[in-house]
């Protein structure tokens, strides 16, 4: 390509090529009108993408910082101030706690009147779930809602999470340290609705003693290992007369407690041989059914020949 020198300056020259392009080139001692080849052409600076101004850079930096702070704040808020799980402590006074991801207690709600009393003047904000659970159990013990040997139920909503397993272990340990029995479950839905019941079982051992009280009905069986003859049957009736012993049950013990525990005695009896004709039901059911209790007083006069009950 040939170039015609159109104009000369100390540092550069204006050239026109054969395609009528007009270009700048280094003035290598050219003269106007001269035709040259292979000139040193101006390297046109590639038009760079519009540069970002300093102000814009600052704005972008501020916006990025704001985004990071907002994101961090949102994560922090989610971890510390958003309910993540629910823990229910059932110790006569039933309490429900909302717990954050980080394990902090967000709020505590009483589920019954006793719980409202238990929570009066209690501040739980910012405390760990385990700490609050321990403190609530301590308060329940102090205020007499639970006693040694009672069972305390704790239900954690997030069953499958690792932290719940750890929490359950810790809770069991801490409850055991109060000489209480722990009933820790993972799923809240599985929590029994009447949580007051668990406090009663410790009283259950009474039945073995009661076993001797109702001995009256079995006694005849025991005394007469062989089933008595039919004529003996007539002498049997005094058995129902025994119920007078029943009144003992309500008297000394916290008798109100035992009635709900009927199942224990039923399972307990070793199964003494019962006379077939004898009302087998009497042994087991008599304590429960009130009817025999009422009937005997009436029946006693029916058997005057029998020795009067002691």
């Amino acid at each position: 390509m040939k170039y015609m020198v159109m104009e000369c300056h100390p540092a550069y020259a204006v050239l026109m090529d054969e395609a009528s392009r007009v270009v700048y080139a280094a003035n290598l001692h050219y003269e106007v009108g001269q035709t040259v080849e292979n000139p040193v052409l101006l390297q046109e600076q590639e038009k760079a993408a519009p540069r970002i101004s300093v102000t814009m850079k600052r704005c972008i930096a501020v916006a990025a910082c704001a985004m990071v702070m907002l994101g961090g704040g949102a994560l922090y808020y989610r971890g510390n101030y958003t309910p993540y799980a629910t823990v229910m402590v059932c110790a006569e006074a039933n309490v429900s706690m909302e717990v954050s991801r980080s394990g902090k207690v967000l709020s505590v709600q009483p589920l019954n009147q006793d719980a409202a009393m238990l929570l009066s003047d209690y501040e739980c904000s910012g405390k760990d779930t385990l700490t609050v659970t321990n403190e609530l159990i301590e308060r329940a013990v102090d205020q007499g809602y639970v006693q040694k040997g009672d069972t305390v139920g704790v239900y954690y909503q997030k069953e499958k999470s690792k932290d719940s397993e750890e929490f359950q272990k810790n809770v069991e340990q801490s409850i055991a340290s109060h000489d209480l029995q722990a009933d820790v479950h993972g799923e809240l839905d599985q929590a029994p609705v009447p949580p007051a019941a668990p406090a009663e079982p410790p009283v259950a051992p009474a039945p073995p003693e009661g076993k001797e009280e109702p001995p009256a009905p079995p006694q005849p069986g025991k005394d007469d290992p062989a089933p008595p003859a039919p004529h003996d049957q007539k002498e049997e009736p005094p058995a129902p007369a025994e119920p007078p012993a029943k009144p003992e049950a309500p008297a000394p013990e916290p008798g109100a407690v035992t009635p709900p525990e009927p199942a224990a005695p039923t399972a307990e009896p070793p199964g003494p041989p019962l006379p077939p004709e004898a009302p087998a039901v009497d042994d087991n059911v008599s304590p429960v059914e009130p009817i025999p209790n009422e009937v005997p007083p009436v029946a006693t006069p029916v058997h005057p020949l029998q020795s009067p009950p002691a």
């Binding site: 159109m6 009108g33 001269q34």
Partner: peptide
């Protein structure tokens, strides 16, 4: 070369009438 120079000079003068310089043409090509 001399003849070319004269032509270019004439062209440059005529371009001045249009308000255009050779450097403008180079920039505007």
């Amino acid at each position: 070369r001399e003849a070319t120079r004269q032509e270019i000079a004439h062209l440059t003068a005529q371009m001045e009438e249009f308000g255009v310089k050779l450097t403008d043409v180079a920039d505007n090509a």
